[in-house]
Design a protein around this nucleic acid. Structure first.
Lengths: 338, 338
DNA sequence: TTGAAAGCGGTACCAC
DNA sequence: GTGGTACCGCTTTCAA
């Protein structure tokens, strides 16, 4: 059934029906209620393609994920929050998966050019990220989860990665650690650079010399945590405390510590960054793991909010948000053995 | 730029341009190449809403996820495969997130009614699943990942959950275990029922009496594994081997075993089902974990294949696929202590 | 507050 | 092999 048929069936004009269903104010309250009810009963749903063609809006936002990186638990958690928020306005999320940067740019071209989405969400910006410029040229609204190296003139929302690691490192120094290892995110990702700065500055302020053999970087997977920790433990002067970039990394670290016959907390301290997943919980580990905590899901919800405002035509170009990160101390952090 | 403008700019008719871009055979090869090149250069992309309106096809498939269940690592892995396959034909994936079954059905109504998607992917069917009937009534093509309790007359792809657990259980019995715990998926999910059948039948064939205190069920999260295992260990006759429904569950099991001062492999054997994630690896655990293995990602790719055929108009209604599951033995399985 | 009708940008039938 | 043009179903201006 289309609008014409439906309007005829209930004895109204197409115009009035369309207005009633789209919530325009000029329709009498009573008329709207009646139409809404009838649409429900007869099962009439406006055709999205037709509406999109007429309005120029797609009613969807796009997000492009890179093969092998995209669908990790982090992104996933973020999307759950995002979807949850957008669902309230019937805005759908359109997902594309690409293999490399090249293809990603092509995907933006396609999504924007064919007007398949009204806005785009960019995530995990890198130090030399060209994507923001590309999207600007394509004239499609976008928001960045994370931030560019330049903190550019587009809306973004990021957590305080610098502050989180600065505080975590400072805390470890406060309780006496002098050799602190760090297993960071991938080199070139802005958030990882920020974390490294936080780490280095905390060390510098206490006059501790930075040791390059105590810093590794890589994807947030168990294996990277394991190998990095093994490498650390084989050093002539191994770290007495370690910062892990994610809970997955932390799992690997814990594994390496156990394999070496050491005890977490007692022999080696650990603070991991926790994006808060429901299927893996720092409080449930043995020992419980200290974390710098920030909810990926909440970030998704908030970005959904901002997107909805952008779609409503509000100018959000100057919007920036930096979320503080909690430091939650648990059993995995103790002063070093004498 | 729209078709009219573009066609005029390159001195061709709209018809020819449209046909060339959509790959219709009647256009001369040479003409097509020229048009393709020009479109690229001038940055012309057909408007998807307009094309959708004219063809009645949306160029997207939909998948509805339930809050708190949807975006787990399993679904996520599946989607990566799916997206990868659909991308080759520029079919997008549209995601909706809902809170309960009620809302899920409403989402299908909306997706189908407004012709936002051309097909729908259903996953994790339950024993009394009404969704397949709803979609049939909505007359929208769909495919099920998993299968209904009735193995109904719609396309589906599933792994051999029954066989996987039957074999795993049989193996444990073969090497001498007589008390085998099972931490299953959520009650009511068809795959979990199949697994339970496999478990029970293997026991029955060896004349082992089923013990209800050795069977638990719940979400595939670390915590459920931990608690279930703790409960098992507190029994007067605890199991000497355990089947875990997922790798997340396995992590919890391992935690409980360690907490109890026991050693995996030596004191308690473990076989976990592994959907193959890249960020957590059974080979990397200590000890390495035996698994029943099936790639969620591959299933996503294959479902993408089938969907593309359905969209091409092929009748797939009788399509069924059951994938075998590998049993991979590692260090976590050993004969019970005497 | 309601209605008639002109687009929105493609597709695909029909003619050449 | 190529081109003219009547739709596809909704939104929104303009008029009543």
């Amino acid at each position: 059934m289309n609008l014409k048929e439906f309007a005829k069936a209930i004895g109204m004009s197409q115009t009035t029906v369309s207005r009633a269903l789209s919530g325009y104010p000029e329709v009498k309250q009573e008329t709207r209620q009646k139409i809404l009810k009838l649409a429900q009963e007869l099962g009439y749903h406006p055709n999205r393609s037709a509406a999109g063609l007429a309005t120029g809006r797609a009613g969807a936002v796009g997000i492009v994920l890179r093969e092998g990186r995209g669908f990790d638990p982090n992104t996933t958690e973020f999307m759950a929050g995002l979807a949850n928020r957008l669902e309230t306005r019937q805005i759908d999320i359109l997902i594309s998966v690409v293999e490399d940067r090249q293809q990603e740019l092509a995907a933006y071209q396609r999504l924007a050019g064919s007007k398949r989405v009204d806005a785009i969400i960019l995530h995990t910006p890198t130090v030399d990220d060209e994507r923001m410029d590309v999207l600007k040229k394509l004239k499609i609204p976008f928001i960045v989860h994370g931030r560019g190296a330049d903190g550019g003139d587009y809306p973004w929302l990021d957590i305080d990665n610098y502050g989180a690691i600065y505080r975590a490192t400072s805390y470890l120094l406060d309780i006496g650690h002098r050799h602190i290892g760090m297993i960071n995110g991938s080199r070139g990702d802005v958030f990882a650079e920020h974390r490294e700065q936080g780490y280095r500055n905390a060390l510098k302020e206490r006059g501790i010399v930075f040791r390059s053999d105590l810093l590794t970087s890589g994807a947030f997977i168990d294996d990277v945590g394991y190998r990095s920790m093994q490498d650390f433990l084989s050093l002539s002067e191994p770290p007495t405390a370690v910062l892990a970039g994610s809970m997955m990394t932390a799992l690997g670290v814990m594994r390496a510590v156990r394999s070496a016959g050491l005890q977490l907390g007692a022999d080696v301290s650990l603070i991991a960054h926790d994006d808060v997943f429901n299927y893996i919980n720092a409080d449930n580990m043995v020992p419980t793991v200290s974390t710098t905590r920030s909810s990926m899901r909440d970030a998704g919800v908030r970005i959904g909010d901002i997107l909805l405002q952008m779609l409503a035509g509000r100018d959000m170009s100057g919007h920036r948000e930096i979320w503080p990160v909690e430091l939650v101390l648990r059993e995995s952090t103790r002063p070093p053995r004498k």
